[in-house]
């Protein structure tokens, strides 16, 4: 099966300030592929480069090496104009539902903006907005309101609706549920899965939480210090990982059960001791 998105040896280095600034790459040689309709989870801790990978796919981070291919076409160094065309293919849902929506625009304006720049007329855009709100289970009268009138979970639904507006084939989800409460998080994740089943969209699902990634992903890749250290079947990677770092990551997450957590604590201690011994 051909890949929808193919990332080969990707390297990203942010330009430094000043003329002779030393810069070290954030990503060094990352390879990852996503098939049509597939959800690939990307796990890592802060600073591991997982968000940078997502931003590189979106054209928001400078690609300094390697290649990103979308549907057979090299998209690593697109000009602004060509990148804009790609908007109907690759979309995004960001982590923070409080800063990812313009506070001065109504929901209707936020959702219809991507449609209007593509020449959809006002009436048609308005009808589409109603449809989009319905798809993310928000009432139609939400359209006339401002983002601050909604809770975090509802705002994230609006962000999802915006990503869906152009019927993309791939959505980059950058920690989309990290800022949400437990019960809201579960419902938003279920919405992601439901949308995927209905539209066949593929996700690059970035999160620091193994449990979240396990819940939504077909395949999982683990990032550590700008490299993918392990990738494979979601169940395998999130329950019986091979790489020492993934093992540490799995053991570090506390289990919400006092009895099993006691056992895991012992296991974790044993793992850390054995890793320290072999190192």
């Amino acid at each position: 099966m051909t890949a929808l998105l193919d990332i080969v040896d990707l390297e990203v280095t942010y330009p430094g300030k000043g003329l002779r600034a030393r810069t070290s790459p954030v990503l060094h040689g990352v390879s990852l592929d996503i098939r049509p309709g597939e959800t690939v989870g990307l796990v890592g801790e802060s600073g591991s480069g997982k968000s940078t990978l997502g931003r590189a796919v979106l054209g928001l981070a400078p690609v300094t090496g390697g290649r990103i291919t979308y549907a057979g076409r090299d998209v690593s160094h697109l000009r602004r104009k060509d990148r804009r065309e790609l908007a109907s293919e690759i979309q995004v849902v960001f982590q923070d539902p409080y800063t990812s929506l313009n506070p001065a625009m109504t929901i209707d304006q936020i959702l219809s903006e991507p449609l209007r720049v593509r020449g959809v007329n006002r009436a048609e855009a308005s009808a589409r907005v109603g449809d989009l709100l319905d798809r993310v289970n928000l009432p139609a009268d939400a359209a006339g309101r401002l983002p601050r009138e909604f809770s975090g979970g509802q705002r994230q639904r609006i962000a999802i609706a915006r990503a869906l507006a152009l019927d993309p084939a791939l959505i980059v989800c950058d920690e989309p549920v990290s800022a949400l409460d437990l019960s809201t998080q579960a419902r938003v994740l279920d919405l992601f899965i439901e949308i995927k089943q209905r539209t066949g969209v593929a996700y690059l699902f970035i999160s620091h939480d193994l449990a979240v990634v396990r819940h939504v992903s077909h395949r999982v890749a683990v990032m550590y210090r700008g490299e993918i250290v392990e990738s494979g079947d979601g169940d395998k990677v999130t329950s019986a990982p091979d790489h020492p770092y993934t093992q540490r990551l799995l053991m570090a997450a506390p289990v919400p059960d006092p009895v099993r957590q006691r056992e895991r604590r012992v296991e974790r201690r044993r793992l850390l001791d054995s890793q320290a011994a072999t190192a």
Partner: peptide, 10 residues
């Protein structure tokens, strides 16, 4: 982020 989102939206 909403400026980034606007860029991604084309």
């Amino acid at each position: 982020l909403y400026v980034d989102a606007a860029r991604v939206a084309g």
